[in-house]
Design a protein around this nucleic acid. Structure first.
Lengths: 341, 341
DNA sequence: TTGTATGCGTTATCAC
DNA sequence: GTGATAACGCATACAA
């Protein structure tokens, strides 16, 4: 391919190879005319520096890794879009890895990223306990957890939503609409997002003197079909919930589809509230009321903090950013039906 | 960070550094016991090879680039998911770049990818004429165009949908439902997807003896709001179309939203058919009839062909894969209303 | 202000 | 089978 190296440029410009390197790196003390000669030679040869070699010499690759669960999931793809854009501002490229949040996969993902010597890593798919991340933080490797966090004293390195508060807001909204029997849909508790939301849910249930019924709580793998089936089952039960709080918008869609298939009207018959506020939730045909993440703000902050860690290796400052969620009122929640008593 | 190199391993195992390299690369003729010694040392030190150095020595990075327009767009994110997964099977990582398909951006994207010495590139956001790609193909650099193609004799290197046929299928479907006035929504003609679909549209219009009316054709930048407004305008015109063929599902959603806002029922009042079959299109609240891409097949083939090009540099075989689309019947199309004549 | 020499961590080409 | 040693393309400490 591009077989021209810094040496070719040097020869053509009649200077040494190090001089070329210097102009490449904007070294200040170069005679303007030799700088010009070099620049000309570079242009004439169409030379562009080999970032790999540069990385080897520098110990810096100008690329970061982004580990997410599944890029085809709107929440992640919308986030990735912002991260890509922000990283680019710092002249960084990003390697994205879908890692399904499976433990073995996660390790492999980190390994390949480390082998490729990325300058930093953003992970959006960790469990609450994750020794690999702990280990990396110990080594002072630039790594920030996005959306989810690990829980370990002294290991703060995350930008996340205030998920406890988010759940509070959702339940409060529902309670004000007179809902008393609220189904809870979330993923496994080993993820901080779901763990925190559950705590928030429970605390709200408590403050409003509602009853906790595990029968109407789903806390398993977030597979569309499973949640769909679960919701259908609830809708057919003796004492069906009047409202559903779903930990992700995507799963709220599953609940909504279940309702359709059961001939239930939303929000007349049941209310549904989600979490995330993915793009499609605002669509006229969906109109999902939801607890919105501030993706733009979160992603931007994540990159900013990561870049700071990268550029200033000695900086061991913790990153502990918790963003306030927002209730986005749309059309899937309404006053609870009066029960026939 | 990981300061241990192949030399440290060599020292510990009491062999030369080249021997270590050999076991790393599975060189066949090594005495089993020395191999074992080396393996032990590697494990003991927790050594993992530096891919950057390896890349420099090898001229091979085991990473490819993927240039798309916007990863937050479902069509691309769903594609990216498959590509990531397939690339991983070949032990490849992928750098994703959102490049908004702007010309200057595109050049920059290619430049950074080349500077990072990726082994190959998949681009899903090219115009029909693109000298940069031509140039790369000339140099026999592994590059494949996905979804869109460039048109230049002898420069076949793409896997795309048969968009001409796709448009035919859409119009045929609509015509069978007795629609005669069909609006056409697509992006700019400098993209092969839209160009080909337009040709297919026109040919169908012709074979069914319908009238071409530029007033009901949109062929501009695919911005949600613009398409939404365009559709609203048409719906309020004297002679409104009874059906809409949209070149992307996403824009079909815009049309559908416009219909809602105008109090029009789908499919009773107007029919809408899309292109792509993104995940959300199958949702009960959307149920969009569409011309489906076979993303799984297309993405898998793309990686396969790209890997072949990478591993066999001398192979100058063209790749010219055109996939048949499928009509996915859902609920947004129906018999045209009888006009009051 | 510029050139020389060395190193970054591998692979590859020679020898032995 | 294995060990020196020279690339790979650049950055940089040290000289000049």
């Amino acid at each position: 391919m591009n077989k021209i190296s810094i040496y070719d440029v040097a020869k053509l410009a009649n200077v040494s190879q190090s001089t070329v390197s210097r102009v490449l790196n904007n070294y200040p003390y170069i005679k303007p005319e030799t700088k010009q000669k070099v620049l000309n030679a570079i242009k004439e040869l169409g030379f562009s520096p080999n970032e790999i070699a540069r990385g080897l010499a520098n110990n810096k690759t100008n690329t970061i890794g982004l580990i997410i669960e599944n890029i085809s999931n709107s929440f992640y793809s919308e986030t990735a879009h912002i991260i890509l854009r922000e990283a680019r501002k710092y002249n960084y490229e990003v390697i994205i890895i879908d890692s399904e949040s499976d433990k073995e996969n996660f390790k492999k993902s980190i390994d390949s990223l480390m082998a490729k010597r990325v300058d930093g890593i953003i992970v959006a798919s960790t469990r609450m306990t994750n020794d690999i991340i702990v280990n990396l933080i110990d080594k002072n490797f630039p790594i920030i957890t996005y959306n989810r966090r690990i829980y370990k004293d002294g290991y703060n390195s995350h930008v996340v939503l205030d998920n406890f508060l988010g759940a509070n807001m959702a339940i409060e909204h529902l309670v004000k609409l007179n809902h008393k029997r609220i189904a809870y849909i979330s993923g496994p508790l080993r993820y901080s997002t779901f763990y925190d939301r559950l705590q928030g849910f429970l605390s709200s249930i408590n403050t409003y003197n509602l009853e906790v019924d595990e029968e109407i709580m789903y806390m398993d793998k977030l597979e569309y079909k499973k949640v769909y089936d679960f919701a259908k089952k609830l809708m057919n039960s003796n004492n069906p919930p009047t409202a559903y709080f779903s930990s992700t918008d995507n799963m709220a869609l599953a609940v909504m589809e279940a309702a359709v298939s059961e001939g239930l009207k939303i929000p007349e018959d049941i209310s549904v509230i989600g979490c995330d506020d993915i793009d499609i939730s605002g669509n006229s045909f969906i109109q999902l009321t939801t607890i919105a993440q501030q993706k733009e703000k979160m992603a931007t902050l994540t990159i900013e903090k990561l870049m700071k860690k990268i550029s200033d290796k000695s900086n061991e400052e913790k990153v502990d950013i918790v963003i306030k969620p927002q209730l986005k009122l749309r059309k899937t929640t309404a006053e609870a039906r009066k029960e026939v008593t």
